[in-house]
Structure formats: structure tokens, C-alpha cells
Design a protein around this nucleic acid. Structure first.
Lengths: 220, 220
DNA sequence: CGCACCATTGACATCCTTCAACCAGGGTGG
DNA sequence: CCACCCTGGTTGAAGGATGTCAATGGTGCG
């Protein structure tokens, strides 16, 4: 099945008639609370399975929206149920679900008790991890999602995300240009994530900033 | 099975050998992230089932700790699995799991995009709801958890929680004394939750504060 | 009684949001 | 082809909400 940028794979609250293994493109999951608050709860890449609800939920807990033109399979609930009889298939499906649950739990902790820089570093590390797992070797990745989406996921504002990316860049951790990000210092990011070194704007002397600018011009 | 205050029903990461329907007392679920960040992810009351993991997880995703001396049943994974064959039982178990999942999702949105006052109002409303569901008619409830636990759940500090409770009290929404809370204006709390009326410290004239103090002395 | 522990309150620091202006790229129509 | 615009992104200044540090107070328990 083909889905255009911005279109929905499924809607929150609608009955789960099928799940959608993602082949190409990417998607975000959005949860809308009863009061109308909306929040991005995750991003999905090829290989993920959209709409896989735990607990055999009869309805989708979130909406899934394509961030790019995407291609996915469609596995009806019925055939899914049939295949769940096969142990191998069953195990891999459960594994995906658990992974998602784990991710959401980490997100909760991140949003609940980490600072903005840590959260963003975490996201970048997670994304590069997924990227590498999909076979890419270089440290360059293209964010499919907007700053607004990132901000929503992390419980921040888009301005904060933007500023933080700039700051990471100015300190030489990454290079940013639009939605292209190159990871320069993964360990550095990791220590920001672990809050080992607070990233202060004035941490980098002027000449350092110059270096970072060179990086940016050169690398992206 | 009896569990003393502070003792654990089960530990995060340990294999799920059983689930624990809670009969008496209360408990908190605590998640510890790989980096050592710890966060309360929920409170449980009699009637809840502790340790019920979705996705047939082989290990507990959180630790459960008794907030008071508690009594619970012990249902081994095996007997649970057997009973899951019965449709009625099965449905009610799945319902509990979905309810938990829904709660956690609302928490994520709350922590990610609502202000402190809203989050706390939400918690209070949730707790009174659960309280009433268990048959109590009056608006008085006793919090089994410390301010620190509440703060952790809501992604705040204990000081903020304390201040906010005082503020709610000074505005006449509730009466607080230690861990006893009396809900005075449920609708008011609801509108705080919905962010309809920002609770400013100076919103209440002096005589109002006097009234609130009377309430406190009288009601708790 | 005195010791922990939890809770409250104040003063201050800081992080983040808010408001606002500006900028860049990508598409569209003239 | 270029001017235009429109969305998304960046950046600055200011203020507010929350965190932090610290002192005080209350409660229950040994």
C-alpha cells in the first residue's frame, strides 16, 4: 500500500482491522488525549510495524501519519491472528511490541526527568542507532520529521529544539543543515545524554565556534 | 501474600513468574532506566493487578513497591495462562491491561505538554475517581504516597508539588493536611486540569485565604 | 524525649517558553 | 526565468514557571 506524506495509515480510536509493516518511508505516531492535547509518541522507520497494539486492543491507541511518501504491507487482523500460531512469527511480533513498549517507557523517563539537551541527545543517538542497524555506515542521517514533531515528542518547543541543535553544532558534536544531520562526536553526545558535561553556550571559545562553522560548511 | 511497606512485590528485569491481584494496601510502580534514572510510573489500589505485563513479556518492566502494608493474591504465570483460555476471564484481564496502557499514555502527554498545576489536578481527579469507584462517598482521600513519589510520577520536584497543593488549598479547591486531602471543588479542579483558569498565587484575596484555613482546620 | 523522615516555605537561579522578527528553500504563476 | 509567497527554521529578548538550596516545622516511632 502506498501512503502520501501527511496521510494517515490509521486513526486513533478506529478499530484495528490490520497492521502495517513499513517498507519504505517513515511515520510518526500521534496520541490525542481526551482533552485535545496532542503529542507525538514515536517515529517509525522501515522494518517497524505500524498499528501493532499490545493487549489485543480492539482500537488503535494512536494515529499514524506518514512523514514521507511511504510504502507498507497490509496484514489484516485475521491473517495476523492466524500467523500468531506459528511460534517463530509470534516471537518476532512480540519482540517488536516489547521494543516499542521499552521505547515509550524510556521516553516517559526522559520527558519526566531529563533536561532538554539530554532528551535531544537521546533522540539523536536513538535515530543513528536505528540508522546504522539498517546498514548505513556514515554518520549522516536525514530527519524525516519537522522540528515541531521532535519538540512534541520530547515535550519541548520547536524553538528549544532548534536552539539546541545549533548549540550542539557550535560545540562540534554534530553538523546540521536543515534536516540533514551529521554526527561528529557520538561519544560527546552520549555524555550529554548521560548529563556528564553540561552544554553551556559559553563553553566554546570563539575560535572553537569558528571550527564548528567550518565543519558545517564542509560536511553537509 | 503479605507485603510490608517499602517491600517489593517484584523487581524490574526479573522473570515474570506470577501476577499479584492487590487486595489491600497500595503500591507504586517504579521504572529504572539503563542510565539509572528512576521514575514512578503509576500507583495501584486494591483491585488492580500488579505485574500484569502486556505482550507476554518474559520479564517485569518495572518494580512494584508497597506504599503500605499490603495483601495480595499470587497467581502464577502458569495458572494465569490456563485461565486465559476462558473468554470471560481473558477479557477482564485484557481490559485491565488496556486501562493501564491508557493511563500511561495520558501520563506521557501530561508530563510532556501540561503545566505542573494541570498535572497535579489530573492526578487528584484520577485518585478521587478510583476512590469513588471503590465505594467511598465522601470527598476525602488519604494519599498513600509521599510528595516525592507524586513529584516523580508527574515529572516535578517535591517542592513544586507541595507548593501546588498549598495553592490549591488557598484557593479553596481542596483542603490538605499531611497526606489527607479533601476535595472541595471538583469542578474547579477539573477546570484547572483543562487549563481553563490559571491558578495564580495572588488570585485569592486575603479573606478567601482565611476561609480556606478554616476549611482545613474544620475538615481534616 | 529526641531522632528520623517527610512536608512546608522562602529566596534565588536557571531553564525553557513566549513573542516576535528574520531568514532560507521550494514550489508556483506570471 | 524570476518574483513571489508560504512553510519551516533560526535567532533574539524578556518573562514566567520550575528547579535548587536552605531553613523551619511537624509527626511518628523508638
Amino acid at each position: 500500500m502506498e501512503v502520501r506524506t501527511g496521510d494517515q495509515f490509521y486513526r486513533q480510536g478506529r478499530p484495528t482491522t490490520a497492521v502495517f509493516p513499513l517498507r519504505q518511508g517513515s511515520a510518526k505516531s500521534v496520541y490525542e488525549s481526551p482533552l485535545g492535547w496532542r503529542q507525538v509518541t514515536g517515529f517509525s522507520l522501515p522494518g517497524d510495524v505500524l498499528g501493532l497494539e499490545p493487549n489485543e486492543a480492539p482500537a488503535h491507541a494512536t494515529s499514524a501519519i506518514a512523514l514521507q511518501d511511504a510504502i507498507c504491507c497490509v496484514v489484516t487482523a485475521e491473517t495476523l491472528r492466524e500467523h500468531m500460531a506459528e511460534p517463530v512469527f509470534r516471537d518476532s511480533v512480540l519482540k517488536v511490541m516489547r521494543r516499542n513498549a521499552e521505547r515509550e517507557r524510556m521516553l516517559l523517563v526522559a520527558v519526566g526527568s531529563m533536561k532538554a539537551a539530554q532528551r535531544l541527545a537521546m533522540l539523536l543517538l536513538d535515530l543513528t542507532g536505528e540508522h546504522q542497524r539498517r546498514g548505513s555506515t556514515d554518520g549522516t542521517l536525514t530527519l524525516a520529521m519537522s522540528r515541531t514533531d521532535i519538540a512534541s515528542l520530547l515535550g519541548l518547543t520547536l524553538e528549544t529544539v532548534s536552539r539546541l541543535l545549533s548549540r550542539f553544532a557550535s560545540v562540534g558534536l554534530i553538523a546540521v543543515r536543515q534536516r540533514r544531520v551529521r554526527i561528529i562526536d557520538k561519544d560527546g553526545l552520549a555524555s550529554v545524554y548521560a548529563d556528564l558535561e553540561p552544554i553551556s553556550p559559553r563553553a566554546a571559545p570563539d575560535h572553537e565556534i569558528g571550527t564548528a562553522e567550518n565543519n558545517e560548511a564542509r560536511l553537509i
